[in-house]
Design a protein around this nucleic acid. Structure first.
Length: 742
DNA sequence: GTACACTGTCATGGG
DNA sequence: AACCCATGACAGTGT
């Protein structure tokens, strides 16, 4: 039954649409076949995937749209959106989105895009522009999908002259029937009353204009209102596309009277029309009313599959479906330049919207810069190769080859552990120490942990400040003020200090058994009230810890500072105190415990027992006091534990940084060594050749280098031996270190 | 609505 | 044994 009703209502809707759009030539067959899902949905599946973020945007942008954010019926909602979009698509000249994007790219700063400008020229222009901007990356994915839909709409045969203005009597009758039907379904007729809604809309607009809209949604709605026509029924904005004469629209619709600068620029030149825009608008409003109410009634279980991501939902419209929407175009442009950048971010962001093309293009160099870094990374690889080029002997290549992916790490490990072979490898290479140092810098900067992070204020703040006593960092000396303050602001003022601030200094120091090696800042921030007094901005922090006692028993010394009294009324103060009080403090007060929780927690055992013996306390009170003491101590212990854990992590981080620095230094030294070694080897080589070239046999002829070689003896003498012998000896010497290694 | 960080609390174990 | 402390685990709360 439901499906039948849905079918009928949808059919009626479509029929109504067709009838009402007088002058629009609609091919019903193609229209019906267009009910098939867009290709992208078939391929990619139902794309309500994009709903999450966009959906919220949608909700935010649709002022007055009657869907409660917490009870949105997605099926009905999207069905309504889809139908709406289809209606709009009927009178809309659809151009591929790529061309639309190009419009934005080539936005005329003077707003001189005329309504009669042929689109072909624009298209040409734009596609080139698009190619420049987008390229085949992800950035165009969205626009491609939208384009698919645009083409889909084109297939409807809805590419037609603009809608004619007035409704015929049949239309009105039909609408009336549908109204009645909707009224039967529970919708009041006033829902469809355009004039009434227009009034409400105007009121809303006034409110919007008058009041400061601090949410982006409000701004977005306003922005939309400026550049788009607003659907009186849904509050949804849609592009002004009917006539080229935008002024007529703005005249006819007072609420859209903002200067349509962008509209003039972006109106499709092919959209021309002479009908009265106001009538058209009203007609649209009525249609929207009908359609929405109908759509909401439709059980979309079947159509959900087909239209899970209704192409015409306002999101799509806002993004890139509607070619004349400035926002849409900006979004497309943004996507084109930013790739997978979040759409909702750019949707109403003024900065992004106002981003000029040049600004977008400036984003493109990101890739080159990345590639630069990549090149430099590979440059280091090449540097390794530069150290050990292939013309070296075979062992050199064997060793150096695997190091290439991680030249430095590999170099360090290998070289430092097996320096001899590596030096041999590098000895004949053109080694550039400058490159090596650059490489080292890259290495440092590319490491996961920034070497300089320990010097940053953030990393030295509170938590780390606690460990600065053990830290050798240069900033530890200066951190007495800055770090201490931050430590107090972050730690001291939180919970713990409120418990311990009224402690006597010796009490605090005695009671908190944090180990000496543990940070003094931590102790200070926790327990040392004198330190607190050094920080004026903390003086107002609740120091009254007599909350256990009745207010009448409050000692004057325990009262909050006068400033607090001046600031607020007694109520505020009480609230403040109440908020400051912990659960145990509330319990203690409820049980009328005659001393403070601080004393309960921090007094040494003997004094604590003495204190207990002074009062006649019930068993429940004693139990509570013990619990308070246990919990309080455990609370401090937990805080100390966490602090220590954090310090440990930070110290480890610092250790890692130090080790990385050492590694870099050692690498630098190694580079120096290799360089000097190479120089020495070059000298030796030149000397060898000089000596060898001067040698003459008995006949006065020079020795052939292929047959003889010079060998250095252990005593410093140089022998001339046949090549074969020399090679054998060299092989033997090669084997020795390997055996030794084994 | 969810993820995350922070904090308090409990249980447990060691000193 | 009593006490204290450290710590893992859990829950509540705020962002």
């Amino acid at each position: 039954m439901l499906s039948l009703k849905k079918y009928l209502t949808e059919g009626l809707l479509q029929f109504t649409i067709l009838l009402s759009l007088i002058g629009v030539r609609v091919d019903v067959d193609t229209y019906l076949t267009s009910q098939l899902p867009p290709l992208r949905e078939i391929i990619l599946g139902p794309s309500s995937a994009y709903t999450q973020t966009q959906f919220h945007n949608l909700r935010n942008t649709l002022d007055g749209y009657g869907i409660h954010p917490k009870s949105i019926d997605l099926d009905n909602y999207f069905t309504a959106r889809r139908l709406l979009s289809q209606v709009r698509a009927l009178d809309r000249f659809q151009v591929p989105t790529t061309e639309v994007n190009a419009w934005l790219v080539h936005r005329d700063p003077e707003g001189s895009v005329s309504g009669t400008q042929p689109s072909s020229g624009l298209t040409l222009e734009s596609s080139s522009g698009l190619q420049d901007v987008t390229g085949p990356d992800n950035g165009v994915r969205e626009s491609e999908t939208e384009q698919g839909f645009s083409e889909d709409l084109e297939d409807l045969g809805a590419v037609a002259p603009p809608v004619s203005g007035d409704l015929t009597k049949e239309d009105i009758d039909l609408i009336d029937i549908l109204w009645r039907q909707d009224i039967d379904l529970g919708a009041g007729r006033e829902v469809f009353d355009y004039s009434q809604r227009q009034k409400e809309q105007d009121v809303d607009k006034e409110l919007q204009d008058g009041g400061e809209q601090d949410t982006w949604a409000g701004e977005g709605a306003e922005a939309l209102a400026r550049n788009l026509l607003v659907d009186g029924e849904t509050g949804e904005s849609f592009p002004a596309q009917f006539p080229a004469d935008i002024s007529s629209i703005t005249e006819a619709v007072p609420s859209e009277s903002e200067p349509p600068v962008l509209q003039n620029n972006l109106l499709s030149p092919l959209l021309t029309g002479t009908e009265s825009p106001f009538d058209l608008e009203q007609q649209w409003q009525d249609l929207m009313s009908i359609m929405e109410m109908q759509a909401m009634e439709v059980n979309t279980s079947a159509s959900e599959i087909l239209y899970n991501a209704p192409p015409g939902d306002p999101l799509s419209t806002n993004y890139s479906l509607a070619p004349n929407t400035p926002i849409n175009q900006n979004v497309s442009l943004h996507q084109a330049s930013l790739g997978g950048c979040s759409q909702d971010f750019s949707l109403f962001s003024p900065e992004v919207e106002s981003l000029p093309v040049a600004g977008s293009s400036t984003l493109l160099p990101l890739v080159p810069s990345n590639s630069t870094s990549l090149n430099s990374t590979f440059g280091s690889t090449n540097l390794a190769g530069f150290f050990f080029p292939p013309q070296l002997n075979g062992t050199a290549n064997d060793t150096a080859g695997p190091e290439l992916p991680d030249p430095l790490g590999g170099l360090l490990d290998e070289a430092m552990l097996d320096e001899i072979s590596l030096m041999d490898l590098a000895i004949e290479e053109g080694f550039n120490p400058v490159q090596a140092s650059q490489l080292e810098e890259e290495f440092d900067s590319d490491s996961g942990l920034s070497l300089d992070s320990s010097h940053s204020p953030s990393s030295l703040s509170s938590s780390e400040g606690s460990s600065s006593s053990s830290s050798s960092s240069s900033s530890s000396s200066s951190s007495t003020s800055s770090s201490a303050s931050s430590s107090f602001s972050e730690e001291g003022a939180v919970g713990y200090s409120s418990d311990s601030e009224t402690l006597d200094l010796e009490e605090a120091e005695g009671a908190v058994g944090y180990q000496p090696e543990y940070s003094k800042f931590c102790r200070m921030s926790y327990q040392d009230p004198s330190q607190l007094s050094c920080l004026p901005y903390l003086e107002h922090v609740g120091h009254n810890h007599t909350y256990n006692m009745a207010p009448s028993a409050l000692d004057s010394a325990d009262l909050p500072p006068p400033s607090a009294l001046k600031k607020g009324s007694k109520e505020k103060q009480a609230d403040f105190l109440d908020k400051q009080m912990s659960r145990d403090e509330h319990r203690a007060r409820a049980m009328k415990i005659p001393f403070t929780n601080d004393k309960i927690i921090n007094l040494p055992v003997e004094e604590f027992n003495e204190l207990l013996s002074k009062y006649q306390l019930s068993e429940a009170q004693l139990s509570l006091i013990r619990d308070i003491r246990r919990r309080g101590k455990n609370k401090m212990a937990a805080q100390n534990c966490r602090k220590r854990k954090l310090d440990t992590i930070l110290n480890l981080e610092r250790d890692v940084e130090d080790l990385q620095r050492d590694k870099a230094r050692l690498l630098r030294e190694k580079v120096e060594f290799l360089r000097s070694l190479r120089q020495m080897k070059q000298k030796v080589q030149s000397l060898y050749q000089e000596v060898f070239g001067r040698l003459r046999d008995e006949n006065g002829r020079p020795y052939s280098p292929s047959q003889y070689a010079l060998q250095y003896a252990g005593d410093g003498s140089v022998l001339l031996i046949p090549r074969t012998m020399a090679d054998q000896q060299a092989r033997r010497q090669e084997r020795k270190p390997k055996d030794r290694r084994k």
